[in-house]
Write a protein that binds this DNA or RNA. Structure first.
Lengths: 190, 190
DNA sequence: GCCTGTCATTAACAATTGTAAAGAAAACAT
DNA sequence: ATGTTTTCTTTACAATTGTTAATGACAGGC
């Protein structure tokens, strides 16, 4: 249940057995079907998720349409980050793409644990740093690369997701229309 | 000298007088003319900057051309973040846009101070979280908005920079060509 | 089995953008 | 003051993208 969780956190910090125990205790396991909303736009995200199995996407809503901002894979923390951190109303929705197994933790419990396990500050810092670096790479690809290049990069690094995620979701993640993605894919085959 | 620095850090943590003293001690003040490279592509960034005065931009190089990834304003930490954090070779260059007054700190000294002042972990975490949220807003604007909408957003929030930063730099920050920016601006006047 | 909803592709047209090149204006240095 | 560099705009053309709509494939629910 916590194998992947332990492996992920141990990249960043080492906890004593009792600390690790206390940390894992605030997470509950939850099985969730595909297309379930985990966090809703307009509400405060008070849960943090670690994905044991499945895929989750984060999207924005604008004029009735959904725009995917990120796709979370297995063995990553997923959340509407700023809403969770600042406990403010979220402008993003978190929704499962596949059936998922999630480890779920409440904001308040995590907050209380920071005092008991100071090393969690380091973990939180490293996770935030990692997410920032990942976000920066995405920004650089928008600034540096054409839609076609962004698709090729996605193909190389997350090619397996092409079989697991509807293409219109990938298209909006790449910042283009589904039609354009289809055209780019057609060009590549030749 | 450290007024803005104190104000910025006090948003996140409160240090004792001696801690604050020790923290500020690892920063040196440096006056730098415009168009000075602070961090070079291919080298490891071992300095972190706090901008007292002036503007700094971060850019990538691709096929002899420069693509701006971020523009740092006064009273912000600026750095080639991942290179500084991981002490790896950087793919980005940091360069002043205007004459700048900077507070400069070495990676090693900061690293040593983490042990003496554990609250710095919290500060580093909050700074990373803030930068991540800022990065996420930029990503969402690439996914949600047209180049024209991105320009209008930039105008509303950083309109003063239009007078301080060459437009071709702003254009590449917005992910478009200078020609396209000029066309968008022309449309807006009417 | 059938129906419905979801999804991917294609076509046609309009709109936008990128590229290359040229010119004018402003800033800078000598 | 002069010449050089930098910056911004404009033009013309090619390429790409967005939009709308139609089609066919596919899976899930009843």
């Amino acid at each position: 249940m916590f194998e992947a969780f332990r492996q992920y956190t141990s990249q960043f910090i080492t906890l004593s057995v009792s600390e690790q125990q206390g940390f894992e205790n605030i997470f509950a396991c939850r099985q969730v079907p595909a297309k379930t909303k985990l966090t809703r736009e307009g509400q405060t995200a008070n849960e943090l998720f670690f994905i044991n199995k499945g895929l989750v996407r984060l999207y924005y809503t604008k004029e009735e349409k959904e725009y995917t901002g990120f796709i979370f894979r297995e063995h990553l923390f997923a959340s509407s980050y700023e809403s969770f951190l600042q406990q403010t109303s979220s402008i993003q929705t978190l929704e499962t793409i596949e059936d998922c197994e999630l480890l779920v933790c409440q904001h308040q419990q995590l907050q209380q644990l920071y005092d008991k396990i100071p090393a969690l500050h380091i973990l939180a810092r490293k996770v935030a740093e990692q997410r920032f670096m990942s976000a920066q790479m995405i920004i650089s690809s928008f600034v540096l690369d054409s839609p076609e290049e962004r698709y090729l990069y996605f193909l190389r690094h997350h090619g397996d997701l092409l079989l697991r995620v509807p293409h219109h979701i990938i298209a909006s993640y790449l910042g283009i229309s589904p039609v354009s993605l289809s055209r780019i894919r057609k060009r590549q085959i030749k």
